[in-house]
Nucleic acid binder design. Structure first.
Lengths: 348, 348
DNA sequence: CTGAAAGCGCTTACAG
DNA sequence: CTGAAAGCGCTTACAG
């Protein structure tokens, strides 16, 4: 055409070249607001106008920029989920449950791992707040969440799951770690064991402490004095757990049963026990896949990870819907599943 | 004070009441741009000015609104990951690998499940595009991705994983499903089996077809004519898979070995076989936890889910860094892990 | 039924 | 070293 290069108002040449509502309006020969109406399905547009706008949208490949929309509207229709490790099977059903509730409320899920590092948890949580997520579901790694106070005050809905918040008052959804562990250990005692080992996660983790407390309670209820060598708390890497298991079993007066504090520990202990000549009774906290097919089947204290996630997410959206209940602590029951390993008698 | 209610300019009373840079600027008695400089750590601010601004930031609990920032900058520093099911253990390590690469590039991960529904995949992908994610890692549910063409043209980096894109040219990272299945089935043949069953996922899923093709190739290489009743493709729910397994094993001329097309199928078949009096040889595609502890150990064709995710994410960020390589198809090798079940001879 | 103006909270480009 | 103006792409509130 006769157009010269000095026409910067040509929208097609903008950098990034995504068409905007302005481009659509220009092409359809209507105002910006009319495009907005069509895009959002608002009433009050002539069928003929609507058709013209729709044609322009299709021709340009326009898609509304929700980033801009969000800036105006205030809410982002997204929530953040901070957990320990996306690859840990325990968090799979939990994540999915949170996602399903979010989806039902039209929200997207931004997901991240803290790797059990409090600094990384904080970094991630604050990055999510900067993105202005509407709410947060947090499996905390740290034990001090005062850094969240200004965010919560500003309206970010927050629910903690699996472990309580530290030094702030907030909703929290937990499994009954204490009761579950106590029941599991009592089960071993009922089958004749008195020297029972406990192998758990690092003592700065709330669930690890609670489960150890349950272990101690069951032992005390049975009048058994617990020896220091029967308890091992630390990282859940296979090397440390294997070492702990072997140490307990090779002591002069070895334990005859072991209680494992979580799914990671369970997998390693079961693996070590499978290599031993004599059977050692075992109960693990958290169910694991195929536990029923091992010889013997693995007796576990199961928690409902999906229910944990669902409960937390529903609570979150209730906050977002304006409910102003006081922060609550919800504790879900655990379930003892007998499969054989926990019903073994003490070795001769 | 003497102030009347008719003073709408009081920033403290704004709805939503999050402080903005404007509020910080007012409190610190500086210009907006100076606040921006301090917040972003840009040079050219007097230590004294910086201190005043910082005090205002702390006093107000200001946190930069990245939503607004993003609108101006063009990039959102976030990527989307669309997979089939957040709860499937196969996707755990894959998700984490993608997250780690994203994190290394300063990006957040928005995560969602398609539930193997093409419409839901599209809905989710387009929602992510509307949020203007910088890139997408997609495990496709559908087989027609032309809906993504305008987005890709507009600059959304895209990599498909585990299954190829449909009807568009795009980067894809796969495991060698064909070769892996062929090797696994050949392994069974090498141990004397001729009547071998194949139980796989729905035939509209690319990996299901490829693995079936591998099965057929191995059988053909051995000169075995495959019978229709030896093959079952469909949903991976336990009921269907159990039914298929029992049917194959109770035929007049039953199969003596079974090859399973993925991890979900494997878990169910292994469970059924464990309940049978006679041993049936078995090889599964995808490794599963505790496979080594079952009796017999479960022989599998393992793929490296983490490597799949890592490779895809790295490729994505290379696209975002401006590399303009032609779309590529990257195929990762699988690995046969012998644990016992695949080395069983045919039953008498 | 339709659209021009202002503004969401930042950054960019520029001027002092 | 510092800041006023314009603009990112939408929606809101309003006027015709």
């Amino acid at each position: 055409m006769a157009e010269t290069a000095s026409r910067p108002e040509r929208p097609e040449s903008r950098y990034g070249n995504r068409p905007t509502m302005k481009d659509v309006a220009a092409r359809a020969g209507v105002g910006l607001k009319t495009v907005s109406r069509v895009v959002n399905g608002e009433p009050g547009v002539t069928p003929d106008t609507e058709r013209r706008v729709q044609e322009a949208i299709d021709a340009l490949g326009f898609r509304r920029n929700d980033s801009a929309r969000v800036l105006r509207k205030g809410r982002t229709a997204s929530i953040g989920l901070v957990l320990e490790d996306l690859a840990d099977p325990f968090y799979g059903p939990l994540s999915r449950a949170v996602e399903e509730v979010a989806r039902a409320h039209g929200a997207l899920l931004i997901n991240g791992s803290s790797a059990e590092d409090p600094d990384r948890e904080q970094e991630l949580v604050l990055a999510l707040c900067a993105r202005r997520v509407d709410g947060l579901v947090v499996i905390p790694a740290g034990d001090d969440h005062r850094y969240l106070e200004p965010e919560i005050a500003a309206g970010v809905a927050t629910v903690f799951v699996d472990r309580p918040a530290g030094k702030i008052d907030a909703d929290v959804v937990l499994s009954d770690s204490f009761g579950g562990a106590r029941d599991g250990v009592a089960h071993l005692i009922a089958h004749g064991h008195r020297r029972i080992g406990f192998i758990g996660d690092q003592p700065r983790i709330h669930t690890a402490i609670e489960r150890l407390r349950g272990y101690r309670a069951a032992m005390e209820d049975a009048g058994i004095v617990v020896e220091e060598e029967w308890m091992s708390l630390g990282a859940t890497d296979p090397d440390r757990v294997e070492q702990a298991t072997r140490t307990m079993l090779s002591a002069p007066d070895p334990v005859t049963a072991i209680f494992a504090g979580n799914n990671r520990v369970t997998v390693t202990v079961v693996r070590v026990l499978a290599g031993l000549p004599r059977p050692v009774a075992f109960v693990g906290f958290d169910d694991i896949e195929l536990a029923d097919l091992l010889q013997p089947g693995v007796t576990v204290v199961a928690q409902d990870a999906a229910q944990l996630g669902r409960t937390a997410a529903e609570r979150l959206f209730r906050q977002l819907d304006g409910a102003s209940d006081a922060p609550e602590r919800i504790e879900l029951p655990t379930r003892l599943i007998k499969r054989g390993s926990g019903e073994l008698p003490p070795a001769g």
